[in-house]
Amino acid sequence: MNFDVVVTCAVTGAGDTTGKNPHVPVTPKEIADSAIAAAKAGAAVAHIHVRDLETKQGSRDPKLFKEVVDRVRDSNTDVVINLTAGMGGDWVPSAEDPAMPGPGTDMISAEERLLHIGECLPEICSLDCGTLNFGDGDNIYISTPPTLRKMAEMVKEWGVKPELEVFELGHIRFANQMIKEGLIADPPMFQICLGIPWGADQSVDTMKVMKDHLPQDASWASFGISRMQMPMAAAAVAMGGNVRVGLEDNIFLDRGVPARNEDLVTRVVEIIERMGGRAVTPQEARNKLSLRGADAS
């Protein structure tokens, strides 16, 4: 059981959710305001994507990230900023020639994937530790070993903590290899991602198996998607982990009730407290996760 829980709020994501919930933030101001509201509700960490202002789909524009980060920092609201570094790995084969990229493909280099990280220097950035069939279509998310090693090397040099996002056991195996190679600063930090088609299923058994493959000194969190968001949060706390909630992973508070990020944070904090634990402050999260800005004492 984890009695001192780091709550992360994944504020908006990149999925096609804006038409399903009017509270999904799109503009930099909306995303920053939602991150601030989540922090005030008890989230220690805000995991941030940005969206194209016209299409409302996920974007990797460094200017949009910079505006969101500046707005959060200028608000004087204390929250650990965690920026996604997962954009730029989408491959969709062409229907005419599967050897060629089709519409929706967005493949860029490791350096390009980290442009906004280098400019904003958040305390945490995500590092998706492998390739995955993403959903039931032809979309493949690609993160190859050379790309991941280069990204890990760069963020370590900048002092940004990589959140090692793992969607199946092979991802943990490669993350552990990067740790052995000295590419990941101690102690490592993992996010066990459950329920994304076609990654690991969202169940207590799956979470435990994946947790048991992590290094002994690792900090970890987990999340489930849609209606399994809160059950998986409770399971993570019971197993000694931290939690992630937010509109990236689930857009409803209850059946048919669109959520706001702060609603989901409030709900998970209530669950943690009913289990006998508490949500830690951002500074306590920095200390617990050994982030830049942790107390030297």
Rank of each mutant, 00 (worst) to 15 (best):
D74Q: 15
A46E: 08
L247A: 01
T12F: 06
P98T: 06
G88P: 10
A296L: 07
R244P: 09
W158T: 07
A35P: 10
S226L: 13
S143G: 03
A110K: 09
Q191D: 14
E111M: 01
A294E: 12
H47K: 03
E119I: 15
L132I: 15
S143H: 08
N287C: 06
E262D: 15
N250S: 15
V5K: 00
V92W: 02
R173G: 00
Q283K: 10
S226K: 15
I48N: 10
T84P: 02
W198A: 13
N287F: 05
P188T: 03
M107T: 07
G13M: 08
I81H: 03
A10Y: 06
F134C: 09
N76Y: 07
A221R: 15
I140F: 13
D201K: 08
W158Y: 14
E123K: 05
M154D: 11
A221T: 11
A38T: 07
G137W: 01
A234D: 11
I108E: 04
I272E: 01
F3M: 13
A221P: 00
P25T: 07
D16H: 08
D74L: 13
G15C: 04
D254T: 11
M178C: 13
G58E: 10
N82H: 14
K29F: 01
K180F: 00
I124Y: 02
R292K: 15
L289T: 12
P146I: 02
L127P: 02
S126M: 06
F167C: 04
G277L: 01
Q216I: 04
D70S: 12
D74P: 00
L132N: 05
S109R: 07
F167P: 00
G86H: 07
V79M: 09
D33C: 02
D138A: 15
G256K: 08
R278T: 10
P162R: 05
A99R: 08
L121R: 15
R60S: 14
L289P: 08
N76L: 09
